[in-house]
Simulated scan of single mutants.
Amino acid sequence: MSLTAPDETLTTAWETAVDDAPVALSARGELVAVAGAEGTVTVLDAARGTKIGAWELPGGALSVALAPNARALVATGPMGYALWRPEDGRTTVRETGRWSSAAAWADNDRVAVASGRRALVLGPDGKELWATAPAASTVTDLAWQRQGRRLAVAAYGAVRCHERHTTKPVVTYPYVGSHLALAIAPTGRWICSGNQDASIHIWRTRDGSELTMSGYPEKVSRLAFDDTGFWLAADGAPDVTVWDFSGKGPAGTAPRSLRCHETVTALAWRPGPAGHLASGGHDGTVALWRATSGRPQARLHPARTWDGDSAVAALAWAGPDLLVTAYRDGHVRAHRPPSRNAL
């Protein structure tokens, strides 16, 4: 590994390898979960990187999500989904035969899972609590609003919002196109979709007004709000774009541009309000950014970078002081970056 800023030490907390090509990461509490393309889900101790358990999701994996208290885990894939509980190692597999691309926890007791054209809301034991009515096409992403009281579901043509136990949507945000990623500001003010047509579409929840940021050279498949809800990071180009959602929002403004990778493969905001973003690329580079510094249209340079041995598959912060990186060759590394004040 090589640092571009040798005056600051980047500590490698641990390194391990998993027996699959990683596609997704989740970190909560004392656990890190790594989902592999062939369906192997490996659970690691966040402090030491030691293996706690592993199990298989038939048909392969696409995403993984630990509950906020890390007492349950959901993995999704092309053929269904599965739940795992670390306290007893019990795995509940649902081979539905339906594409399941995403899962999102509302709290410790409810998780939403994309399952074909519906979203299912499950308890931590895997029992179905309720389900949405079928959308026009396969659900591609979902997210919770209002502290878990409303579920937003993205499928071709619209983002539909459901209150608890309401199968039919209570609010529909139409958009003619295929949504690839969904991000909701922690403030609840904004719903954003990254789209196949190389755009970001935005709805203001207060009045349903809309805005489209188009002109990206590639499809936008990764979106992430920071903890303040004022900053949105997106891929869709060699540059990571960071949009300012404070005040009246991004209408009429330009983003900050973060260029380090030829192809962006992962984005993850450091927990807290400091505006630090980690990004990963197909070339194996991981970059740390002071992503909210400068002015609109500014081209920012990484505060720190380091190189891996293969493409970055996923990034996840295990708290503000530990960044976990999964590489396509199966290596998983945890680093302790400089403090938020020192970066």
Score class of each variant (00 low, 15 high):
residue 316 A to M: 10
residue 301 H to S: 12
residue 330 G to I: 10
residue 321 D to A: 13
residue 310 S to Q: 10
residue 335 H to I: 15
residue 317 W to V: 04
residue 301 H to A: 14
residue 320 P to D: 07
residue 319 G to K: 09
residue 316 A to N: 09
residue 314 A to W: 03
residue 314 A to L: 03
residue 327 Y to Q: 14
residue 308 G to E: 05
residue 314 A to H: 05
residue 314 A to C: 04
residue 309 D to P: 11
residue 324 V to M: 02
residue 336 R to I: 08
residue 326 A to G: 12
residue 308 G to R: 04
residue 320 P to Q: 07
residue 310 S to C: 07
residue 314 A to I: 03
residue 321 D to E: 13
residue 301 H to R: 15
residue 304 R to T: 06
residue 319 G to A: 07
residue 309 D to A: 14
residue 324 V to F: 00
residue 304 R to V: 06
residue 331 H to I: 08
residue 309 D to N: 12
residue 302 P to S: 02
residue 317 W to F: 04
residue 304 R to Y: 05
residue 316 A to C: 08
residue 313 A to W: 09
residue 322 L to Y: 11
residue 311 A to G: 05
residue 324 V to W: 00
residue 316 A to W: 11
residue 310 S to W: 04
residue 301 H to W: 10
residue 337 P to H: 00
residue 321 D to Y: 10
residue 309 D to V: 12
residue 300 L to Y: 03
residue 305 T to C: 11
residue 326 A to I: 12
residue 337 P to E: 00
residue 322 L to I: 06
residue 315 L to I: 05
residue 310 S to L: 11
residue 337 P to M: 00
residue 330 G to R: 09
residue 327 Y to H: 14
residue 303 A to F: 05
residue 306 W to A: 11
residue 336 R to P: 01
residue 311 A to Q: 02
residue 312 V to R: 01
residue 315 L to P: 05
residue 332 V to R: 01
residue 337 P to A: 00
residue 307 D to K: 14
residue 317 W to K: 08
residue 332 V to I: 10
residue 333 R to D: 06
residue 309 D to L: 14
residue 327 Y to G: 12
residue 330 G to F: 13
